[in-house]
Simulated scan of single mutants.
Amino acid sequence: MIEPVRLIKKYPNRRLYDTKTSAYITLADIKELVLKFENFKVLDAKTQEDLTRSILLQIIQEEETGGVPIFSTELLGQMIRFYGNAMQGMLGKYLENNIKIFVEFQQKLQDQPRSLYGENPQMQTDFWAQFLNFQQPAMQSMMSAYMDQSKKMFQQMQDQIQSQTRNIFTGVPPHPPAGDDKP
């Protein structure tokens, strides 16, 4: 049975109220909900506006400024440049699909030590430590190759869209320059 969406209300005093537990919570608590794959929605208590994305972005901002960032300054700049661009919608779907693939790959890697050592967390930790020590260069190379392949696919998509656009507009006559109204 699918659990109903957990409702979190955000009040004007910036406090977050979890209607399931009838208690005020913090961004750290919401991060825990995300980590536990809980289905939730954050609504403005007064206007009922959906604030879920805004809250998730706040959590990302805290993580980015507090520890080892995932996003480089260059990547953030490139992402900002996509806003308002014709490719904006495609970039979101592209990133979403690549993250899903990465998570599936990570899950498969985590299942391997589980099948060897069962649910012994110490053995799994030891396995991962050894694996990362010996395989880090190979993993970096593999991820680099994957990113190169993704880059090529994205470039091919862009080229295809440009080609289709040119084909669409080849039969359209150009407009005469302004002031050239003479027959």
Rank of each mutant, 00 (worst) to 15 (best):
L109Y: 10
E96Q: 10
Q140C: 13
Q124H: 13
N85H: 11
T26L: 11
Y117Q: 01
Q130H: 10
V42I: 02
G89S: 03
A28F: 11
S115G: 01
Q156E: 14
Q135C: 15
G89H: 00
Q130A: 10
L109W: 05
R53F: 04
Q107M: 11
I8S: 02
N13T: 12
E49T: 13
D148N: 12
Q48R: 14
I70M: 14
I80H: 12
P69Q: 05
Y83H: 11
P69S: 08
N167D: 12
G118V: 05
Q48W: 13
N85M: 01
L57M: 09
M79I: 14
P113T: 01
T19I: 07
N39G: 02
L75G: 05
L33P: 00
L33E: 01
I60T: 01
I70V: 15
E64R: 05
P173D: 04
T19A: 07
V172S: 04
E62D: 15
M139D: 03
K46L: 13
Q140I: 09
I8D: 00
P113C: 02
D50R: 06
S115K: 09
S144W: 06
P12W: 02
K9V: 05
F82H: 01
I30D: 00
Q48L: 13
Q158K: 13
K93A: 06
T21A: 11
M153A: 14
L51I: 00
K20M: 07
D180H: 13
Q140D: 15
T21P: 03
T26C: 11
P113D: 00
N167V: 06
K93R: 15
Y94I: 08
E74W: 04
G67A: 13
L76D: 07
L27R: 03
S115M: 06
D50K: 03
K182P: 00
A145D: 13
N133D: 15
E63Y: 01
I59V: 06
V68C: 07
F102R: 02
G92A: 08
L109V: 10
M147Q: 10
S141D: 14
S72Y: 04
T165M: 10
G89P: 00
E32V: 08
M142Q: 08
R6L: 04
A129F: 14
D44C: 03
I80W: 13
D50E: 04
S72V: 04
P174N: 10
D50N: 14
G118N: 03
N97T: 15
N98H: 06
K182N: 10
Q78F: 09
S141N: 15
F131G: 03
D29A: 03
Q160E: 12
R53N: 05
N167W: 08
K152F: 09
I8K: 00
N167L: 10
Q106Y: 07
P176Q: 08
I161L: 11
F82K: 01
Q107D: 15
Y146K: 03
R53G: 01
T26D: 13
D18M: 05
I60N: 00
